[in-house]
Amino acid sequence: MYRILLAITLVLTHAQLIACELKLDDAARSDADKIRDAASLPCEMATLLPLQQGDTVLDLLGGGGYFSELLAQQVGKTGKVLLHNNKAYLPYVGKQLETRLAKNRLSNVERLDAEVDALPLKPDSIDAVYFIMGYHDMYHVSDGWQINPQQLMKQIYIALKPGGRMLVVDHNAAAGSGVSAAQELHRIEAAYVSQELQGFGFNLVTDSTVLANRNDDYSKSVFDQLVRGKTDRFVLVVEKPTAR
């Protein structure tokens, strides 16, 4: 009986832990965002990277701003969310951004339209970074799109405050594949990313399997309808050391 009660307690504790304070049922949120919640697990992400009222957060290559709207709740009126996109991405997300930010409905979210080789970020000015489904794009090359990973991550490292953290989520690739799947399949190997981030000077805080899917065999593009929205995704949280 004791073990059963303990198990129930642990389940309830976990449920309370991931419940967080996000208002997912807020009437102002779009139906599309609410549907996405089931796949993106924003409460779990908020638990992995807790934020405080007044924090400044960078949503790096944040697309249409799904996470930015939720981050805005977390940092409150005294905080700020920098919703970043580069020129090449804007044609795909511009209308979403206009709708989401219309009439200043998210007053603490600031659009940051800037190329990744020259982000206008001051040193030690950012408390946290969300980098969602964009790490592999540093190794993808197409017309108008080419990123220098070392240069971008150096900027992020400098902009983060000591002790500041970055949440990285991306589509996993086969073990040992490194960055080779980034071009065609839009995937990248979790172990490679973890090692590279530590090579850039970050400390690994968390390696979570909350978005894992063992049924994904890594053979298909993330845009293939058979796996779209159901890929095996890795979640890493890294931290800028407080002292070196």
Rank of each mutant, 00 (worst) to 15 (best):
E98G: 05
Y139G: 01
W145Q: 01
K87I: 03
Q74P: 10
P120M: 02
D143H: 09
V116Y: 03
D137R: 03
M45A: 12
S125E: 10
D113I: 14
R105W: 06
P42D: 02
Q146S: 05
V93A: 15
L83R: 00
S125Q: 10
D170S: 09
K80S: 14
I35W: 08
Q155S: 10
P162C: 06
S40H: 11
P120R: 02
R105F: 02
N104F: 00
K161V: 01
H140Q: 13
K87A: 11
H84P: 14
Q151D: 08
G64H: 02
V116I: 15
A102V: 03
L49I: 11
A114V: 12
K95C: 04
L58A: 12
A118V: 08
K77E: 15
G64M: 01
Q52E: 14
L152K: 03
K34P: 00
D170M: 11
I35P: 00
L71H: 14
I147C: 03
R105P: 00
L152G: 00
Q74E: 15
S68R: 01
R165P: 00
D124H: 09
L121E: 05
S125C: 04
G79F: 13
G63A: 12
A39S: 10
K77Y: 12
A118Y: 04
I132S: 02
I158H: 04
V168Y: 02
L83Q: 05
V141M: 03
P123D: 10
K34N: 09
H136Y: 07
M133C: 08
Q52A: 14
L51P: 12
G144W: 09
L41E: 08
D37I: 06
L49G: 00
P149N: 03
V116H: 02
D117I: 01
Q53P: 10
V116Q: 01
L58N: 12
V81Y: 15
T47P: 04
G65C: 12
W145F: 06
L51R: 12
F67K: 05
K87V: 05
R105K: 15
M166G: 11
P149S: 04
R165C: 01
G79H: 07
D117M: 05
T47Y: 12
A159T: 06
P91Q: 02
G144R: 09
R100K: 15
L119Q: 09
V93R: 06
E110H: 14
A114H: 08
Q151V: 02
P123K: 13
I132P: 00
A128S: 15
P120Y: 08
M133I: 09
Y130M: 13
S107A: 12
L83I: 07
N104E: 13
L101Y: 00
G62W: 06
K87H: 10
E44H: 12
S125F: 02
A46N: 12
M133T: 10
V129C: 04
H84N: 15
D137V: 10
M45P: 00
V168C: 03
V75W: 02
Y92F: 15
K95Y: 14
L97A: 05
L106N: 12
R100S: 00
H84I: 15
L119P: 07
